[in-house]
Design a protein around this nucleic acid. Structure first.
Lengths: 201, 201, 201, 201
DNA sequence: GATGAATGAGAATTCATTCAT
DNA sequence: CATGAATGAATTCTCATTCAT
């Protein structure tokens, strides 16, 4: 809204974008400051004007990746008529940007191993799950409260859905030929839905 | 088959065990040949008698971790009376071993980002999923064929179960306070079971 | 001579004062243009309008420190009745601003190691000693010529006095608990005085 | 005495010697790890096997310089018949290796500015003064107790002597043409001696 | 087989200096 | 005059790998 956009913030984004591409191309452990500089067209020294050190840049990258991920997830406005369709809408949305996800998901995985030791990583990851689950709980609660779903703990159900989504993605990382993310996420969630659904008669 | 176990194989195991502990303590990216040598009590040069280079050692480590994981999973002899209880036995076994898993799981995650670029890593991970699913399929097929479960694709159902197990574990890595692996793996699988179960009447 | 002090000169002083504080706080080798800019409130570029480069700034700093030091020393108007008391007045004056000295003395010391290699530093330091000794020689010469002191070379005696003063200060830098500058400078000079004094009888 | 000399200690010495020469040639602030490596004929990496980092190497250098200095000072066995001649012997010895001193003294000076901030430097410098004074006190005490010198505090007198020696050296660093260390240290100490001496008659 | 001292290519980081605005 | 973002050469430091013993 301000007439002059903060150049500094643009630079950070520019650098993070370059870093993200570099990581997507070569892996987190092959990330080199030199290469980030090259890809931005900036000099190496400039990177250090915006990030204290390489570690700091990496963490900022993780945070940005998770944020974008959450933006996608939270942006799902369930305009669906019922919980079941809301959940399907959710899955559709997740499945739609599987392409983007595959580029950046390994970034998060690369950080899992330091999550125990680094509070900032820990915070970022925790917040991610928290918000992810928080996006799902209302849908499930609505279904349970309306009687569309069987009685259940909404958070546990949300965690089940999230684990199917994230777990399938993970299996897909393991084997990209065996797992088809769109299909298997859908079928997994359908199985859950089937279990959740109230039986008539 | 020789009565005398190859000393050389013992050495490899000794080294891999040291490396595994090192990675569990400090993360894959902080793995140093120096430290492996220290933890083994061997000299640095000796490591190179048993592994071509660091990369080779890391891959051997990944393979060993996945193998041990599979040994646990495949060792589950379903002596259960029906598919439902066989699945529960499976989950119980997985859950029992969560302590060990948490130590070594980040090792696999650390390799996910290389999987695209390294065929040997890719093979190891693929095989892991393949065998994991292969351990589940028979249980589900039996249930479906016996009419205990509703008609479904056994492999898809197996993938759903696997994704719940692995996905919950992943979420747990993200947030160890929010997720309780034993409880949430069980409740996730119960939701699936509920969906799979054939409705009577 | 212009009624209006040169703004430019004010800026230089402002910068040198900031630099002096920075050096006092963190040592000469930790002096950073960045920090001088910060402490001045000026921009880094501006520093280069007033000093050709960092080296130039450092030298100006040395010269200013030595000048201030000399101002203090030369400002001692010996209104004393005799040489002995003139010398005591000198010491009193030196001792009085030990607090200021301790802040800036390390600055000179930091330059000693460059003195061999840099003519300008050398000139500044030489001039300092020259004027320091020149401030003392008249006092000692007066004492010697009046018969108050024994026959001696006035310059050698002046150097002895200066070495006690500067040497005690140096020892004090080495160990601030063992040496008390005021007390030990005084006692050192008293020993010299005692030796200089003409014996009666 | 052990049949096999510790190579590791030799290497440290070798490195420190190279560093000392480098510092003597170009000043402490121009010390480069690269150059030390070149001068030793070792590789850069090797330096880091023996010293944690550059700072650590510098401190070891300071410690070695001060130790050698003290070895020289403490090695003065006063076989002199009286205190006065013992003191002269002391001065003679100091004066004799002025050549070596001039090479290494600026090293200590370079550290004075961080003495406030670094405990290890502080300890090294403190110990230096302590041992320096401790080498002088016995001579002066003997003279005072035997009645050769006038009543005085032996430590204060020792500090006076030390300040003349170190102070003259310092002035000499300031101006190498004006000060002749041998001559002016001698004349300074003679003035002190004259003051200390008991007057007859 | 085993050792561990030495290596050196490669990466991160620093900071005086410049220059377009 | 003043600015401060950008630079990049210079330096420190790391660590997998080798090899003489």
């Amino acid at each position: 809204m301000s007439p002059r956009v903060d150049v500094s913030e643009q630079r950070r984004e520019q650098i993070l974008t370059a870093a993200e591409t570099a990581v997507a191309d070569k892996g987190l452990d092959s990330l080199r400051m030199d290469e980030v500089a090259d890809r931005t067209g900036l000099s190496k020294g400039t990177l250090y004007l915006y990030f204290k050190n390489k570690h700091d840049l990496s963490l900022a990258l993780l945070e940005r990746v998770l944020d974008q991920e959450l933006d996608a997830v939270e942006g799902i406005t369930a305009t669906a008529p019922d919980a079941e369709n809301a959940l399907r809408a959710f899955v559709d949305r997740v499945v739609v940007d599987v392409e983007r996800v595959i580029r950046v998901i390994p970034i998060s995985y690369g950080f899992l191993s330091i999550a125990f030791r680094n509070r900032r990583v820990q915070q970022a990851l925790k917040q991610y799950v928290r918000r992810y689950i928080d996006a799902l709980v209302p849908i499930l609660r609505a279904g349970i409260e309306s009687g569309e779903f069987q009685p259940a703990d909404p958070e546990e159900a949300a965690i089940a859905v999230a684990s199917v989504v994230e777990g399938t993605m993970l299996l897909w990382m393991y084997d990209r030929t065996m797992i088809e993310p769109a299909r298997h996420i859908r079928s997994g969630v359908e199985h859950l839905l089937h279990g959740l659904r109230r039986r008539r008669g």
